[in-house]
Design a protein around this nucleic acid. Sequence first.
RNA 1: GUGGCCAUAGUGAAACGGUUAUCACAGCGGGUUGUGGUCCCGCUAGUAUGGGUUCGAUUCCCAUUGGCCACCCCA
Length: 471
Amino acid sequence: MAKKEAKKISAKATKAELPAETAPKKTRIPATPQPPRGMKDILPVEEKFWSFVRGKAESIARAYGYDWLETPILEETPLFVRAIGKQTDIVEKEMFTFVDQSGESLTLRPEATAPIARAYVNHGMLNLPQPVKFFYIGPMFRHERPQSGRYRQFNQFGCEILGDAKPVIDAELIILGVRYFDDLGIPVGVEINSIGDAAERAVYREKLIAYYRSHRSALCENCKLRLVKNPLRLLDCKEEGCRKVRGGAPQLVDFLNDENRNHFMKVLEFLDDADIPYVMNPYLVRGLDYYNKTVFEFVPRETQPAGEVGAEAEARQSSLGGGGRYDPLVEILGGRATPGAGFAIGLERVILRLKEINAPVPETPRPAVYLAQLGEPAKRKALAIFEELRRAGIPVAATFTKDALKAQMEIANKLGVKYAIILGQKEVLDGTMIIRDMDAGIQELVDAKKIVAEIRKKLATPGSEEPKLPS
RNA sequence: GUGGCCAUAGUGAAACGGUUAUCACAGCGGGUUGUGGUCCCGCUAGUAUGGGUUCGAUUCCCAUUGGCCACCCCA
């Protein structure tokens, strides 16, 4: 559209301004701008998925007593550097960071936990009854190479609990997450692990490095790098050889102190009680610095119990969400030491999964009535009738820009409305209107004054009411 | 950041290096200005961008941009 106009205008201008022989044969049209890489328009055809996943997110979070909290999309860069950690991939190479006009470094938020912890400190929420519980739904930004289920701008639904260190908090979050997927009709499992505290991880790290050094020759090239760069990541390498080595590797859980081990056991007990399907995954580690103790991921389960549990099947599974405890975070941000835990779920991935398993998703509500008009006087009257119907709470559609009745009936048909109201010259004079049943093709003449009542009656009739929301 | 595959109307596809780039669907307009679904006719709209090879490039080569997929990492 814009492209078309641009072409015509510039072609015309060229002709008018330049002598015929100097006019270029082909006018150069600047290409229409595209969305930035890894970002996309979400079109109306996608709406039902978005309102479904957002709606269910909000309702379950509220049901569990979480309050809505929205933080700015931009934050001061140091917030993320301090919270997430300088050495992490997110901070090192994935942040959209820029300097604004006043020379301040700002960053498009790559996640929401740090901003929420920041808000907790800023607003002195330690004075509220603890713990405080928040949920959010909104866009996050990471400068990564786009891929299946991975975008540079993506949306997360997340829940955070601040101000309580008890294991039941960890369990509650996991349960809430699983229930959310239940609501959506997506079968998921939970993978869970405990990564202890920084001190324990440091000890474990040394042991792990020592172990892997002794098996260095069996490792892939990548893992040889990881050995020095990011030893914990050795554990989730998918290479055959590395997986074998992993089998004999020391496990982090064995390095936990009594308190942390006990905490972890308690979390698992709560999950057992709630019948939450989980798998202990000793190799699950989280990338962000602020995590401690419990870490977990929500992973999609095959709808039908597939026999294959091979490397292939596992590798294909990208997690739908994850989270964990982050007791050190608030203090890192300069607040009084306050424990916390939370999770984030990637909504694009959730929608992708909904489509993969063909889960039933409610249709977006559509107008049930179309108002067609013919002729000037009818058009004027139709505007008033439209408003009358709208105020009566009847979803009505109309196209006042179209004059031909035929064109309007075509639209009515495409919208799939149950009834069309037809208002022409004759009807205006007679004070009547035609109600046409689109499926049956029958129409009747009604008193214009009773139009709202008539339509309401028809829509209420059992036969005409289509159950559109399977829930 | 690394690698593989890819790029033709709004969408999906076609076009041995050779006239005017084809088709379907969608869109718009008609089929004597009062009736939709099916039908008929017409119109709109395209080789991502920039170079190169060639008498001639949608076709071959390079770069850029973007898409898909994998790695890395993560949601």
